[in-house]
Design a protein around this nucleic acid. Structure first.
Lengths: 244, 244
DNA sequence: CGCACCCTTGATCCTGCTCAAAGAAAGTGG
DNA sequence: CCACTTTCTTTGAGCAGGATCAAGGGTGCG
C-alpha cells in the first residue's frame, strides 16, 4: 500500500474572462451539447478556470463541498484513505468528467492531479441557482451521476470478485474504451498514473500489478513502448480474460 | 421488466385508492416529507403496490428499465454476476430505499427479495413526466442518487482495502446504524440474509464469514441469539476494528 | 555524475480460499 | 407429529493467490 504524499496546495491561476463552451472539451461532448445561448452565458458568468500541477491536491475528503469541477484536460484521481494510510482510488477522471457532483455537505473523497490538469470550477451555490432556473440542466447532471453509479457498481464487482489478471485486463480495456470514446486510436493506450495508483485502484499491490503486466507482455497480449505507453496487441484475448 | 421468475408471480394488490404518504414508511422519511397535496395526488395516480416473496427476482440486469421501485417493507438484495457464476452483491435495500433509479436503458443489476417484500412501483415514463411538472422532485431523487454514490465509494474502500475482520465489523455496524435510523434498538440486529449473501456482499467466502463471526463471538464483541439475530455487545470495540 | 524515485523480479509468508465433513434448521410428505 | 430430505452453517485441514520483504535495474533530473 502506498502512503499519500501530496504536495501542499499551490496558488491557483486566476479565472479567465469568459467560459467558452466550444473550448471546453467535455462540455461540448456531454453536457453543453445543444444548450441555448442564454444558459451558456449563465454558466459562463460563474465559472473559474484553474490549472493544476501533478500531485497537487484539488479537494480533500471532508472539506466543505463549496465547488463543483469539470476536468477539461489531464487526468485526476479520486481516493479515500483509512487511518493507517491504506488507500482506495475510486476513480480516474478524464477530460469531460465532473468532480464533486455527489457531495452535499463535505466532499466524500479526495482528488489529486495525476498529470497537468485544467479545470472549470463552479461555485455550488450559484450552480444550484442556475439549475433552479433551468431544471433540465439538473436532469443532465442526474444522468451523469447515474452513470457514475453504474460504473461504481462495476468496480465493486471487480474489487470483490475478480482475480488479479482479470482486474488488470478489465482496467486496460476500460481505459482504452474511454480514450477511444474521446477519439484516441484503438489499442494504443497511455497510463499516466503510477503502478501504485493502479494498484490502489484495483485493490492490489504494486508488485502484483507489475508482475501481471509482465505476464500479459509475456503472452504477447500487450506491448510496452515505454513505462506509460502500452499497446493492446490482442484485445480479443484480453476481453476473454475479462469474460464478464 | 420482468416478473419474478423464481416463483410464480402472485396476484398483485391493487393500487391503493390514494397513496397515503404517512403509510409509506420510506417516503415519509426521505422523499414525501413536506410535499404539497397536489404532488402526492400526482404520484398516487401512477403507483402500483406489489408483494414479493423471498427469493423472488424483482428485476434482472439488462432488462429494459421501465419501472422505478420503492421498498416499503422487507429487504432486497442487488447483485451483479460474472459469466461463471461469481456474484457481487452491491447493496441491500431496506424500507425507504429506491430500486432502479440509476438505470437508463436497462437495469444495471439484478434484484431479489431476501424476505417478504412490499414495493411501490412507478412507471418510469410517468414518473419522468411528474418530475418535469415538479422539478424539485427530481432534485430530491438526485440527492438520493448521490447518497447511493457515496455509499458505493465506501464499499469500494471496504472491498479493495479492508481485511475480513474489518469487513465484517463494518458490515455489522453499518446495518445496525441503518436499522437505528429507522427506529430499531441500539445494538440488536437482524440479519435476514444468508451467510452466502453476506460473503458476496463483502467479497469473502461463506466459510470466512462464518469463521469471522465465530471469532467475534469468541471475543465477546457480539452475541448470537439465533442464526439471524445478533446483538452487538461491544460496539466501541467493533468501531475500533473498523478504525476508518 | 549521482541521487531519488519508480518499476521489476525473486524468495518467502500469510490471509483467506478450497475441499471436506458433520451439525443445525427448515421444509415436505406420510 | 415424525422421518426424511434439503439447505444452510460451522469447523477443520491443507492449499494458493496475492502480500510482504528484499534486492537490483531504469529513468529523469539537478
Amino acid at each position: 500500500m502506498t502512503l499519500p504524499r501530496a504536495k501542499p496546495n499551490q496558488p491557483r491561476i486566476a479565472p479567465c474572462a469568459a467560459m467558452d463552451c466550444r473550448a471546453c472539451e467535455f462540455r461540448s461532448l456531454t453536457f453543453c451539447a445543444g444548450l441555448p445561448e442564454r444558459e451558456i452565458a449563465e454558466l459562463s458568468a460563474i465559472v473559474t478556470r484553474l490549472r493544476i500541477e501533478p500531485q497537487q491536491v484539488i479537494i480533500q475528503e471532508g472539506d466543505p463541498a463549496d465547488h463543483v469541477f469539470n476536468v477539461t484536460s489531464g487526468v485526476v484521481k479520486l481516493y479515500k484513505l483509512l487511518l493507517d494510510g491504506r488507500r482506495q482510488i475510486t476513480g480516474f477522471l478524464l477530460p469531460g468528467d465532473f468532480l464533486g457532483l455527489s457531495s452535499r455537505v463535505g466532499y466524500a473523497y479526495s482528488a489529486e492531479a495525476v498529470t497537468d490538469v485544467s479545470l472549470c470550477r463552479f461555485p455550488r451555490q450559484r450552480l444550484e441557482e442556475a439549475f433552479d432556473r433551468f431544471p433540465h440542466l439538473r436532469r443532465r447532471l442526474f444522468d451523469i451521476a447515474n452513470d457514475e453509479l453504474v460504473a461504481a457498481q462495476d468496480q465493486m464487482l471487480l474489487l470483490g470478485r475478480k482475480t488479479a489478471l482479470e482486474k488488470i485486463a478489465s482496467f486496460l480495456l476500460q481505459l482504452s474504451e474511454r480514450e477511444q470514446r474521446r477519439g484516441a486510436g484503438l489499442g494504443s493506450l497511455d497510463l499516466p498514473m503510477t503502478r501504485g495508483d493502479i494498484a490502489d485502484y484495483l485493490g492490489l499491490t504494486i508488485e502484483t500489478v507489475s508482475r501481471t503486466l509482465s505476464q500479459l507482455k509475456g503472452q504477447a497480449l500487450i506491448k510496452q513502448k515505454s513505462l506509460s505507453e502500452i499497446e493492446l496487441t490482442n484485445i480479443d484475448a484480453l476481453q476473454e480474460i475479462t469474460e464478464s
